[in-house]
Amino acid sequence: MLLRELVEADGVSGCEKAVRDILIKAIEDRADEYRIDALGNLIAVKYRRSRSGAGVAKVMVAAHMDEVGLMVTKVERDGFIRFAPVGGVDPRVVVAKVVRIGEERIPGVIGVKPVHLLEPGERDRVLKFEQLAIDAGMSGEEAQRRVRPGMYASFATAFELLDEGGLRTVKGKAFDDRAGCAVLAELLAESYPFDLYAAFTVQEEVGLRGARVAAYAVEPDVAFVLEGTVCDDSPKEKDTSPTTRLGAGPALTVMDRSVICDRRLVQLLISEAEAQGIPFQVKQPGIGGTDAGAIHVQRDGIPCAVVAVPARYIHSPVSVMSLNDFENTVRLMRGTLQRLQGGLEL
């Protein structure tokens, strides 16, 4: 299963090679061509099979390969490894977790002072990254030799199926956005009435950087962004938005902090969902940002839409999503892309 392979690989922003290599293998017999650019984006192209007249000629669909994680900043003489977050990591979630360091995937743990030794009040204080260290079990000498500043570390989390029936929930890390990558790889299995540029982007988590240069280079007529997005549907005191709900289908973005989606494209997605009877939901507006934020303002403007698989607890070592939502996202995107046949009034 491609999804399992993708989420068990490590690909913190700036170091997406392992994920890229898996994706290259997965799309090799589906795409006509691929390229890797200066930042490390993988852009696979599937050319249309016939000249289908007017309308949309070039569509870019993007999903980001990178995940949030950690970077080694200093190896202390006693072997403890200082680190800093890469992308938006909540310092509260890293305490007492297992990580893998570098290409060698050296295992390490992020320890914490035993509860017995805490001063009064200390257990109510949030630990800062500066107060934490990775322990790889190494002597100072060995740590200095094998672990170097600038190496990345990633959460060590296995992919597992939690519920075989029902919502078919799975747990793993980096569903944001390996879920999108897996959907995008599926889309390349078909041909479309336009040239499809599947952009597996880098560095989304540190500022939408890969998508920006990819969109500039590809110059598509329209773009879709596939995401694994916030799902906050746990019980709460107030009757407020869950952002998205697990199992309620692909989430469509109207607007978030980075983009106001093109209303024609959003409407196209909704029509397709209704026609096929695919459940869908509208994501809470104003939350988060995606590669679409960078893509839609490239050159003289690119209409964009965002379709996401809801995932609970993203940006933490372990998140949960539903395979039903995942498969419905594939179906919705496949159908919507075919609907671009007649073109979009642009």
């Binding site: 938005s241 507006p285 104003g286």
Partner: peptide, 17 residues
Amino acid sequence: IVVSHIDAKGFVRFGGV
């Protein structure tokens, strides 16, 4: 403003545009 949620009693939560 943009509507972000409608609660059981019909009150509308919103975000800024």
